[in-house]
Amino acid sequence: MTSVTSISTLIPGNASAMPTSSARTVMQLTDVSVFYGAYEAVRGTTMPIREHQITAMIGPSGCGKSTVLRSLNRMNDLINGARIQGTITFHDQDLYAPNVDPIQVRRRIGMVFQKPNPFPKSIYENVAYGLRINGIKDNLDGRVEKALRDAALWDEVKGKLNTSGLALSGGQQQRLCIARAIAVQPEVILMDEPCSALDPIATGKIEDLMHELSRTFTIVIVTHNMQQAARVSHYTAFFTAEVDDKQVRHGRLVEFNDTGRIFTNPNDKRTEDYITGRFG
């Protein structure tokens, strides 16, 4: 019998992932659709992002979870023809209002990518880059060290800060990217499948790190790995790909809820099918 509850036994003791019910809403998506040109890639997404919580977005390929993630710090602006409908607010301010500068948005809402992408510069310069472009010049050494410590990388690199960031292992590179993102003290960190290029040990380190970071930052993570979502997140949004009457494939948010609830007692049949492996 493949009951929904049997999946939950795969989840390591994750008491820390209990959502804090009093958490404030930092970002709010209301009826958000993302378009690429005339193509509506994701339709009608409404969900909150809560402060100091980890929100996971899961779902099959092509369900639009990365697209939604990238609309949260206006990275989609860089794609020709991309636009959104609906509203995304950050501290009750419309992120897409005409007077909002996307560069300022990205300075407050950072991002970590699927493939570790350190700059071809030294470890130190990788972390200092964000500080420099933000005009922060005082105590650069201290800030770089703190970011590397907070990213659980300091002990491994403290003796070789001047060597290239690209000489590190994949897992170390990804933690360097996290250090680079948190150095500028954003409020929200978006993570787009941050562990999909890493081995299980490196993945474990990043997951532990995410727990630590959620005390200071709000985290949104897109993942293909359902166990990962179950292990690290407080809230989970399940997206799926649907085909409408006109045979147009598009992504849709099926269910948003506490992670425990999604993985043990989902409201929607499609969620249940997906997490029990009956999706198809």
């Binding site: 990518f113 992408n117 071809p120 964000g130 933000n134 990217c177």
Partner: peptide, 27 residues
Amino acid sequence: VPDSDKQAAWALGATRWEMIKGSVLPH
């Protein structure tokens, strides 16, 4: 220059020139 390198700079709130200086030129 890989797109991922440019995105790294954009995501830190780089302006276009800062992105070029941080990602494109070193690469």
